[in-house]
Amino acid sequence: MTDRAISDLGGLAGGPIDISEHQPTLSERRIDAMMMLLRKKPRAFWATDENRRTIESLEPKTYEESAYYERWVLAIRALLIEKGVLSETEIEAKLAEVCARPAGGANGDQPSGDRQ
């Protein structure tokens, strides 16, 4: 049904719920922290509702197949571009550079910024 937003799930059929506990990974925790910092004051680049709208605007296949924090990081990317904080060109360039790093060096575990 095309009238249903991809995020609007109430009443759909589904399988058993996996109730096992999950410790968030480092990537997931960093995405969570970035989202909170970008959304709240003093930066407040966007409202929570804009974040929701962006996630709902993902391709249905992407929404269906992506993990929770994968949707979040895709929303952060889209909103940073929409709000003019980062450009698509610089994100793509950086991503290419990150992906080209040798194994063991890609994690960015050593913050490259202000940490001494």
């Binding site: 009238d3 249903r4 937003a5 609007d8 109430g10 009443g11 509702d49 929701r52 709208r53 709902e56």
Partner: peptide
């Protein structure tokens, strides 16, 4: 059934 971002679930 308005287009765009909506906060009222379809089932209601």
């Amino acid at each position: 059934l308005p287009p765009g971002h909506v906060r009222t679930p379809l089932f209601l």
